[in-house]
Each structure stands twice: as C-alpha cells, then as structure tokens.
Design a protein around this nucleic acid. Structure first.
Lengths: 169, 169
DNA sequence: TAAAAATGTTAGTCATAGGAAACTTTATTT
DNA sequence: AAATAAAGTTTCCTATGACTAACATTTTTA
C-alpha cells in the first residue's frame, strides 16, 4: 500500500501525465498562443506562430498536425489555422490559467522573471492549486489594507541577502 | 532588440536552460534524494535510490555516472554513492528549495497534490521567485492574525465551483 | 565453498520536441 | 506569365531520460 507520498522524477511525472492528459506541455503552449491570436485575428499561420514561440516552422507544422488530429484546430496543408469549438474552450482555459498565475506571481512581487516563471508553472500545478492561487488573488483584491501591508513587509526583505541561489558555479 | 517579453514553449525554455544550468530537472531530483538519505545514512545505493524515485536501476546508474563526472558524488561501479562537498552544498540547496515551496503551498491550502506540485514547481521557478515564496511564508508566520483570517477567507471559496479545470475530456 | 539470490551495468529501444537541409507550394514582383 | 521570394512541409538528425533484456558482479544462504 503506497502512502501517497511516493517521489518521482520530473521526467517520471511527465510520463505519468501522458496517460491522462490530452496535451503535452509544449502542445499547450502552442494552443494557448493560437488562442491569443485567433481571438484577435480569427486565424493564424505557421510562420507567425513560429515567430511568436521562437521555434522553427518545421516544429510548428508537426505540432499543428497533432492538434488537428485531436480536433482542436481546423487546418490543412499550406492553409490557415483556426480553432474549433473544442480548441477555443481549451485555449480559453489555458489563457485563463496563465493569467491567474501571472497575477498571482505579480502579487507576490515577481517582476523580471514573470513571463518565464508563469509559463513554467502553468505546466506544473494541479487544478486545485490553481484554484488556491486564484483565491489568494481574490484575497488581496478584497483586502487592500493587507495587500499594502504585505507590500511594505516585502520591502524589508528586498535587499536582505537570503542565499537562495545555486551555491556553486 | 527583444523586449524581454519573448514567449517560448516549455521545451524551448528547457533547452535554453541547458546552456547555463549545471543539472537537468531530473538530475536535480536524483541529487535531492541522495542528499536526503546521505544526511541520515552517510551513503546510498543504486537500488534504494531507484525505489525511492520509482525508476529502474538502469536509469539510476546512468544518472549517477553523470553526477560523478560533474564531481557531485563519489562513486565507482558496484559501489556505494556518497556526496562530495560540492554535492552536499548543492543537495542542501535543493532540499531547502523543496521545503520552502512545500511550506508555501501548504500555506496556500494545497493538500492532496502537495508533493507532486512541489516537485514540479521546484524546477519551474527562478531564485528570485523562490525568495518571494520564502518571504510570503515569513509574512504569515509573523502575522498569525492575518494567517487565520486568510484561512477563514479560503473556507468561503472551498466549495464554490470556480471552473478551473480542463473544459473537455 | 558452491549455489542461489540480489544488485548493478550495458546495450539497445522508445517518445517528445527541438533543429537543419532539401524540397514543394503559394505569393509577389518585374 | 515567368522569375523570384516567401512560406510551409518532409525527411532525417539530436538529446534526454525512461524502459527491457541480457549480462556481470557481489552478497547471502545452504
């Protein structure tokens, strides 16, 4: 009987996730970006998407084909990419998740690494943890005095050198 | 001139990280576990480590060889694994990081998925974000009345159905 | 101490998702 | 319309870190 406290490697978790998740982390990133742009523009092309995500078109083609098979985008060779209803629903969730995490990190005081940390955490947390992030955002929103108090509290530690960086080169 | 707002895929970030990071995420998981056990036991063996991380011994052997080359563990074929000073310093940091994140999530109300979320976030955040987590823990610790107030606040939303889960099967 | 069991290693396979190069198709110019 | 440029695709390659199977070594037990 496992105690539910079983450790796994990062890779191990990823492999376990494959079994019950529809999309891999990278596929989610593509879909999220497609959603962002299609909501404005109606469609997107391989090239633009590649540039937005800093990958080569050949990588994008491959992923789009997969998203097509999954019924998340409408797409045929050399054509434009559009979201299906299913793709829209999922894309909307992904963007929402992104925004909750981004606001959460912002509330905590994260700045320079905001985008990267958001994009990495997106793929790391369970729906319930996301909900907790969301509730925390709400908490600060509804209690501005605590929010301000917290901001002042942070200031104290701002320059304090708590060594929380890699100890070796 | 990039605006520092450049998006990347999950994979893209991982590949960028390889350039300036010493260890991959999985290697960090192995080292952290080695540290946990060596601090108690002085050494560890391939088999035990494999069981702890839910991987096969052949996977462990390969990673240990890499950690050996990096000078983080002392190890020779069929022998025991010990941490070098360098390995201890890094392992200590990794465990510390783990514990800060775990406490942070606990403070937010994460329970069932605590271990998995902690292990995933470990590899997702920058040192500065870790520091922000740490400061938040301190904040609640030093302000128990706010901490209690926050716990009550969470209760209100506990059963509220904010749909923050995958919208499709 | 010889046989059996447990432990550890090596070699080869897999999937993901990135890239380069060569090619095809579509769009733009002249 | 033909030539050129841009966009997209395909094929093949790479790395990581899982796995299995076969083999080697060490430890235990009879």
């Amino acid at each position: 009987m496992k105690k539910g406290k079983e450790f796994h490697t990062f890779r191990g978790y990823q492999i376990l996730d494959l079994e019950d998740k529809i999309l891999t982390s990278s596929m989610e990133d593509y879909l999220e970006m497609i959603y962002r742009i299609c909501m404005e523009n109606g469609y997107i092309r391989i090239n633009i998407l590649s540039r937005k995500l800093n990958v080569r078109p050949s990588s994008t083609t491959k992923i789009i084909q997969k998203l097509g098979i999954l019924g998340l985008v409408d797409y045929e060779k050399y054509g434009i990419i559009r979201l299906t209803d299913k793709g829209k629903a999922l894309g909307n969730y992904l963007l929402r998740r992104h925004e909750i995490i981004e606001e959460f990190l912002l509330n905590l005081g994260v700045k320079e690494t905001l985008l990267k940390d958001t994009e990495m955490i997106e793929h790391s947390i369970s729906p319930n943890t996301l909900k907790n992030f969301y509730i925390f955002n709400k908490f600060l929103q509804e209690n501005p005095s605590i929010s301000n108090f917290y901001i002042k509290f942070k200031e104290k530690y701002k320059n304090e050198d708590i060594e929380l960086t890699y100890p070796i080169k």
